[in-house]
Simulated assay, not measured.
Amino acid sequence: MASETEKIHALLQPCSTESLISSLGLGILCLVADRLLQFPIIQQNDWLRALSDNAVHCMIGMWSWAIVIGVKKKTDLGEIVLAGFLASVIDIDHFFLAGSVSLKAALTLPRRPFLHCSTVIPIVALTLKFVMHLFKLKGSWCFLPWMLFISWTSHHIRDGIRHGLWICPFGKTSPLPFWLYVIITSSLPHICSFVMYLTGTRQMMSSKRGIHIDV
């Protein structure tokens, strides 16, 4: 059994000075990256705009997950890269809806594609968690539903500054204020970490990394 000190340390880890500084850096990344994307040289080129926008989604996803787990060893980098991939791969649904690999067709859709419906996020995360439990994959991969949740949510929140959030079946919200987007995105890793602790996921992840914390 872990001591009370170890339990408290696990709970407060997301609020450590290092974590809070990383969160501030994430907020600065959001602020700077989206301002840079407004440069005419980027906005006037469809390919450059699409690739740059997707790259920012990827970086935010990677940075967010790095805050959640804390980068302690090289093997953690694989998880961080996966989080970035999940944050950026959502945009593939533009091409599915367009029924074409044409970038122009993907950028001029009559409606938003299905993976950009925010209701999909908890449904997919919970379904993934159930499937992992069913096939007894919850040990080493216990983090995956949470990674998907934070990566996809960061993508949706960022898209929300332009299009609002699409919450089926209730409709769409107004576009999010830029300051709210920055605050939510930089706070999301801490909220996710806290809920992961309450559900026991952080303890399982700590055990996987060689730190045993029982509750």
Rank of each mutant, 00 (worst) to 15 (best):
S3C: 07
S3M: 03
E4G: 08
A10L: 09
P14F: 05
C15E: 12
T17M: 11
I21W: 02
I21F: 00
S22N: 04
L24P: 04
G25M: 00
I28T: 03
L29F: 00
L29E: 01
C30L: 09
C30R: 06
L31P: 04
A33M: 06
R35P: 08
R35G: 13
Q38P: 06
P40G: 05
L48V: 09
L51Q: 03
L51T: 13
S52G: 02
N54I: 02
A55C: 00
H57Q: 04
C58K: 01
G61E: 08
W65I: 00
K74T: 07
T75G: 04
L77Q: 06
E79S: 14
E79Y: 13
V81M: 04
V81P: 03
V81H: 01
L82S: 13
F85T: 07
V89E: 08
I90K: 09
D91R: 04
D91P: 07
L97I: 04
A98N: 02
A98L: 01
G99T: 00
S102K: 05
S102P: 05
S102I: 08
A105G: 02
L107S: 00
P110L: 05
P110H: 02
P110Y: 04
L115C: 11
H116Q: 11
C117Q: 12
V120Q: 10
P122H: 13
P122L: 10
V131F: 09
M132W: 05
H133S: 13
L137V: 10
K138V: 15
G139T: 14
S140P: 09
S140W: 11
F143T: 04
L144W: 12
S151E: 11
S154D: 06
H155R: 08
H156W: 12
I157P: 10
I157G: 06
I157T: 02
R158I: 03
W166M: 12
I167R: 06
P169E: 15
K172M: 14
W179P: 07
W179F: 14
V182T: 02
V182D: 03
I184Q: 01
S186E: 12
S187C: 15
L188S: 04
L188A: 01
P189R: 07
S193G: 01
F194L: 14
V195W: 10
V195M: 10
G200M: 02
R202C: 07
M205Y: 10
S206N: 14
S206Y: 12
R209Q: 13
V215E: 11
